[in-house]
Amino acid sequence: MSDPETDTPLSEEARHAAKMAKKKAARDKIMAGKSGEKGLVIVHSGSGKGKSSSGFGMILRCIAHQMPCAVVQFIKGAWDTGERRLLTQNFGDLCQFHAMGEGFTWETQDKARDITAAQAGWAKAKELIEDPEIRFVLLDEIIIALRYGYLDEAEVLATLAEKPPLTHVCLTGRGASEALIAAADLATEMTLVKHPFRSGIKAQAGVEF
């Protein structure tokens, strides 16, 4: 790359600056066409780790912005997790936390009980989503409840379609349906590449709970 006026070669630093200036101009042009706010439907699915972790990261961002938010846990409610301790002990004024599940279905071994817990969780979730004062609702592991047929997916999709316009809703769990992904504004699939559990290492505090 040369200086267009003198036709002399540019230094590495100057070439880099020119390249970044082009990128910035292109980015600014893209951003100029974006405006307004919208409450997003966010889906985190896939077999890899990080679905719930990402959802809780957004909950902390909401708290930092003083945005009222809420968590409904559909599966892990019986677990003593770090995120539950942190939110209930320190940010209860901004973040409601509802632990509705009793564990994975192979732990309870009682399908009727699992369905009852899931439906109670959804009743609370629907109430929270429909409250315009709450700006972000995390439905942790709800996709598992949907996949097992414990909840009516059509009802969930209808609620998402009719939510307050500035409310964000994040749904996590493996096996999101095509209909749920189609309804989402943002959908991410976590891909499993490597996991310590396969090497005989159990879940670690601070990393997985």
Results as ranks from 00 to 15, higher is better:
9 P>M: 04
14 A>L: 02
17 A>S: 03
20 M>I: 14
21 A>T: 07
21 A>V: 02
23 K>I: 06
24 K>F: 11
25 A>Y: 08
28 D>Q: 12
28 D>R: 04
29 K>V: 10
29 K>H: 09
35 S>R: 07
39 G>S: 04
41 V>L: 13
42 I>S: 00
43 V>F: 06
44 H>D: 13
45 S>M: 05
46 G>S: 13
47 S>P: 07
48 G>I: 08
51 K>A: 11
55 G>R: 02
58 M>Q: 11
63 I>K: 01
66 Q>M: 15
68 P>I: 08
70 A>V: 05
73 Q>N: 08
74 F>N: 10
81 T>M: 12
82 G>C: 15
83 E>C: 15
86 L>G: 10
87 L>R: 04
88 T>I: 08
88 T>V: 08
88 T>Y: 12
89 Q>V: 05
89 Q>W: 02
89 Q>M: 10
89 Q>S: 12
92 G>L: 05
92 G>A: 05
94 L>Y: 01
96 Q>F: 05
98 H>E: 14
105 T>Y: 03
106 W>Q: 15
109 Q>G: 06
110 D>F: 03
110 D>P: 03
112 A>E: 15
113 R>K: 10
116 T>F: 06
118 A>T: 07
120 A>M: 06
121 G>C: 04
124 K>S: 12
125 A>G: 01
126 K>A: 14
127 E>K: 10
128 L>Q: 02
130 E>R: 02
135 R>P: 01
137 V>H: 04
139 L>S: 13
140 D>R: 02
142 I>G: 06
143 I>A: 12
149 G>P: 00
149 G>W: 01
150 Y>F: 15
150 Y>Q: 11
151 L>K: 00
154 A>M: 00
156 V>F: 03
158 A>C: 01
158 A>I: 00
160 L>C: 02
164 P>L: 04
165 P>G: 00
170 C>W: 01
170 C>M: 13
172 T>Y: 08
173 G>A: 12
175 G>A: 00
175 G>S: 03
177 S>G: 08
178 E>N: 01
178 E>C: 03
187 A>N: 09
192 L>C: 15
192 L>Y: 02
194 K>P: 07
200 G>M: 12
201 I>W: 05
202 K>N: 03
202 K>R: 04
204 Q>T: 14
205 A>Y: 10
206 G>A: 14
206 G>I: 06
207 V>I: 15
